[in-house]
């Protein structure tokens, strides 16, 4: 089955509902493959946010990632997505 490596992931059902929340046209649908790709996309988004914030915290030599670290990496994160 596609995308079968271990680890946490978003459910397709959740992603579908998240997207539908914001469609302007009710007729808009999402193909099964596109939905699968979107779960990947969201997973990468969270992983990137976490990894970049973690790197920021490590560069400041602290053992816990806090909001300030996330805040510092947020602008570039949002430019990349």
């Amino acid at each position: 089955m596609a995308a079968s490596e271990a680890g946490a992931r978003f459910k397709k059902d959740t992603v579908n509902k998240l997207l539908r929340l914001h469609f302007k046209d009710e007729k808009t649908k999402v193909s099964a493959d596109a939905l699968q790709l979107m779960t990947e996309m969201l997973k990468v988004f969270v992983q990137e946010a976490a990894a970049r914030a973690a790197r920021q915290a490590q560069s400041e030599d602290v053992p816990t990632v806090d909001l300030e670290h996330l805040e510092k990496v947020l602008p570039q994160l949002l430019l990349d997505f």
Binding site: A8, V46, Q47, Q58, V65, D66, L67
Partner: peptide, 22 residues
């Protein structure tokens, strides 16, 4: 929930902790 699980994976990988607020 899923974001929390993914953060946990990153935390283990990088040997660091994430605050709840983060």
């Amino acid at each position: 929930y899923t974001a929390g699980c993914l953060c946990q994976e990153v935390a283990e990988d990088k040997e660091i902790e994430f605050s709840k607020q983060t």
